[in-house]
């Protein structure tokens, strides 16, 4: 089945009208993940944009057509470990156990439980939709926020200009846990993303699977809603967000990028980087190139 067949023939398990921003990457990712995993799924969605958008529900109503719980901001992976333990004990390993969390709940306060669940090889798929900040609370910095980004906690002022530090490379860190499957994905490369969600679910039957998906955020990034997919594509093409997967310890670049565009092509569309001067942009380019070299090395040599 082509990815278009998959997407057109599978049921949308998310409420049709949910309170995510126009052009939200998170909503797109959530819907696709659940379309592919199907109804035999339990999902945990911690506080963040997706939980805040009402997908867990309101009052006595469900936000999804499948069982869903809003765990704590910092315990998605451990709470689901308990669910997984129970489903294994009941002999119902056919049930897909999925966590879907933003970068804050994944890379920051949720990282301890995530890392431990990966180390234990818990049978689940953990999806991080990375919009590079705490968007649900008004775009504060996270550890995946890119260097130079303006956020509400790393504002541009007279003496400081946005976030000082480079982002934490969560997908590579997760790969180093020896998880069964780790991949990055972009909604701009839908075929690749659909295949990775499928692989992730398959891997979750025998180990820990982790997907790190870039999630365009018109509100936080201050970009036009219609440009989200375009930005997601440019993030990949500039090597700002390269696409790779690590399966059974083998690194593979799923979308090779022989002729990368300059990172400024991606950054130009985002007001969060608008204040950066030539030197700072050059630094970002340098970081992106270095990161890409590392990935090239890993995909070349660890295969």
């Amino acid at each position: 089945m082509s990815y278009l067949d998959v997407l057109s023939e599978s049921k949308d398990l998310v409420t049709p009208g949910m309170s995510a921003c126009q052009g939200c990457g998170g909503e797109l990712i959530l819907r696709k993940v659940l379309q592919i995993s199907g109804e035999n799924t339990i999902i945990g969605i911690p506080p963040g944009c997706m939980a805040g958008a009402g997908v867990v529900g309101w009052n006595f109503s469900n936000g999804l057509k499948i069982p869903v719980h809003i765990p704590l901001l910092d315990n998605t992976a451990s709470l689901l470990s308990g669910v997984t333990a129970m489903y294994q004990k009941m002999g119902r390993e056919d049930v897909n156990i999925i966590g879907l969390a933003g970068d804050g709940a994944t890379a920051d306060c949720g990282f301890q439980s995530l890392s431990a669940a990966a180390e234990r090889g818990e049978h689940m798929l953990y999806v991080c939709y990375d919009n590079e900040g705490y968007m649900n609370t008004g775009f504060q910095r996270s550890s995946t926020t890119f260097k130079g980004s303006q956020t509400s906690t790393t504002p541009v002022g007279k003496v400081k200009k946005g976030k000082k530090e480079n982002r934490k490379n969560i997908p590579m860190i997760m790969a180093m846990h020896g998880a069964a499957y780790v991949a990055t994905a972009s909604p701009g490369h839908m075929k690749d993303m659909v295949e990775k969600i499928e692989k992730g679910i398959a891997a979750s039957k025998h180990g820990f699977a982790y997907l790190h998906i870039i999630s365009p955020c018109p509100t936080g990034w201050v970009s036009k809603p219609e440009c989200g997919i375009d930005l997601a594509k440019k993030a990949v093409k500039s090597n700002y967000f390269p696409l790779f997967e690590v399966e059974e310890g083998v690194w593979r670049r799923t979308v090779p990028n022989p002729k990368p565009i300059p990172v400024t092509d991606f950054i130009a569309g985002l007001r969060k980087f608008k204040h950066l001067g030539e030197d700072e942009l050059a630094e970002i380019q340098e970081y992106v190139d270095k990161n890409n070299e590392l990935l090239e090395k890993l995909t070349r040599e660890v295969s």
């Binding site: 949308d12 379309q35 219609e226 989200g228 997919i229």
Partner: peptide, 27 residues
């Protein structure tokens, strides 16, 4: 690419837009 799944494909593989929940993002 539709974030709200408001575009469908029918049996003949033709695409159409549903306006029931479309937020008008323009993607």
């Amino acid at each position: 690419f539709c974030p709200v799944n408001s575009i469908y494909r029918d049996q003949e593989k033709k695409y159409y837009i549903s306006y029931d929940y479309c937020k008008g993002c323009g993607i």
